[in-house]
Design a protein around this nucleic acid. Structure first.
Lengths: 227, 227
DNA sequence: GTCTATACATAGATAGAC
DNA sequence: GTCTATCTATGTATAGAC
């Protein structure tokens, strides 16, 4: 699998994501017409992510969001009850998508090594396809209210657990080495994150997403595979 | 070298750092008495870093800073002309310290492998000793004005260049493998950053700083050393 | 459903007393 | 040098017209 194959494989249609958000937030969205909601949620989220790729969510004013999305300030408040709720909404959905796609892809692997490769590739490819979303989820997590911050942390650990489980499975089958499984998973995760946190760097160096994914796999195999 | 040896080795006295800041910002600091300035700069910076380990710099109000530092709002403006300048001041000094300590430590190594180990260890140890400072420098870089953002990026590349140079030296001496030097440096840097970006995770798992540093060295050697 | 107008709160920054 | 009081700007959120 390479990036262009991945993109065809995974259906990340904005309408679909927006629909899921609607399900999740029926009570705080005041507009009744489904089609309207889906359309405008897309505009609002796109605008938020675009603005927040340049400045922080805190620094983005409702005036900014109004200008970028094309909806008036008043209208915006028909889709969320306050600014913080918008933050929570995008973060929750972002984590949900990531987890779903990741677990779906891994399920296709039949042995630990294949699963490991799939996990690394699909994470990097997904963060490439939804770069702004991933960046936002990472960088704005600290501005969440306390209880939502806790969820963000749980989600991070959950993703890492996916890698820990794969590695442990490999250890049991004697294809992976049995030392520092947890740390191995942690540094793999760190490498995955670097792709969307520092994309300006890789872009300026003309490192392609496929090249990066292959390199991370190479590193992971170097520390894990039994020689 | 382990962490406790490192701490003795590197003199990170707050007075010294504060003195350097004073040198750098003579014109915007209105208070004349040197001792006063040093003292209060320490209080201001400590307070800022403490607050910003919990919320963003944007979200920190001058009122917050006043309460935490013990100086009145009016007095604070004797040490910087506006809030953004305070941000720039801390960021600039943070990058400066990191670069100085790192290059000083590496100079003690006599061969590429030793230099690589020293670079990894001193970076992780330093980020441990100045965790809030490193976290702040990373996470708040995006709130800098455009020209200062450029400096932050240059600084990131400069640090990475240190690793690239060490690896290239090792390639020339035929101790390191000659493939993907730039990517190798990049992922090493990603692992270093994870230590201060996710310290809550490592702390809760009781991973010590020495253990983490050793593991990163292990990973780096796995991908670089010629078998 | 969406707009405009506006109330209300909070922020950064300054002036002048001490 | 530092404080208190205050000005002004900007931001969130709402009310009521269309």
């Amino acid at each position: 699998m390479n990036y262009s194959e991945f993109k065809k494989l995974v259906n990340l249609s904005k309408e679909e994501i927006s629909g899921q958000i609607l399900e999740r937030n029926r009570n705080s969205i005041k507009v009744k017409k489904e089609k309207k909601v889906i359309d405008n949620l897309i505009r609002i989220i796109d605008a938020t992510l675009a603005i927040c790729s340049k400045k922080s969510f805190q620094a983005m004013s409702i005036r900014d969001l109004s200008a970028e999305s094309g909806l008036s300030r008043g209208a915006l408040y028909s889709y969320f009850t306050n600014k913080e709720e918008l933050l929570v909404l995008i973060q929750t959905q972002g984590r949900e998508i990531a987890y779903q796609v990741l677990t779906d892809q891994i399920a296709k692997g039949s042995d630990p090594l294949e699963k490991l490769r799939l996990a690394i590739k699909s994470h990097i490819y997904l963060s490439e396809a939804m770069r702004n979303w991933f960046y936002f989820t990472y960088i704005e997590a600290r501005n969440l209210p306390k209880d939502e911050q806790k969820r963000a942390i749980e989600s991070e650990l959950q993703t890492e657990k996916i890698f820990i489980d794969i590695i442990n499975e490999g250890v049991k089958e004697q294809v992976f080495r049995d030392d520092n499984v947890v740390l191995a998973a942690a540094v793999i995760k760190a490498m995955l994150q670097d792709w969307y946190l520092k994309r300006w760097k890789y872009r300026s160096r003309k490192v392609s997403v496929d090249e990066y994914a292959d390199f991370v796999i190479h590193v992971a195999e170097s520390i894990l595979l039994i020689k």
